[in-house]
Amino acid sequence: MTTTPAPEPVAAPVTTGSQLHPSCVTDRNQPTFDAEWQRRAFGLAVALSEFGHYPWEAFQKELISEIGAWENAPTDSRGRWEYYEHWVAALDKVVHRNGLLEPGYVNPEDREPDPSP
């Protein structure tokens, strides 16, 4: 599945006033993922780099570019900030730029059943 989700309207600023970083009051020493797919996206990007499929800088460059595009887009046309969406978009790009998958890949879950007997 490679379709880009439709942009969501920006509803509210991501941070307000002095409640900038509530987590600062405690020592949070666990990775902060809100969902398992974010955790797996993180692990996948690191794993591909660790096993030599691209240098980490290549992933990082894509991530900077994705985040920069969001930051430079008009606030009324860009979606709500969601860090791991940029991470996934960067992962998708670096995977394709390094020829690891062909464009237009289809999730094995979504494939038509094999018609051959």
């Binding site: 989700p5 398992e36 797996r40 969601e82 996934v88 992962l91 995977v95 890949y105």
Partner: peptide, 19 residues
């Protein structure tokens, strides 16, 4: 938004399975 979340989750799942 749950639809955006669902799309991202599906994409990550697809990438890992295909790799």
């Amino acid at each position: 938004p749950s639809d955006r979340e669902a799309a991202s989750a599906a994409q990550v799942r697809a990438l890992e399975k295909l790799l």
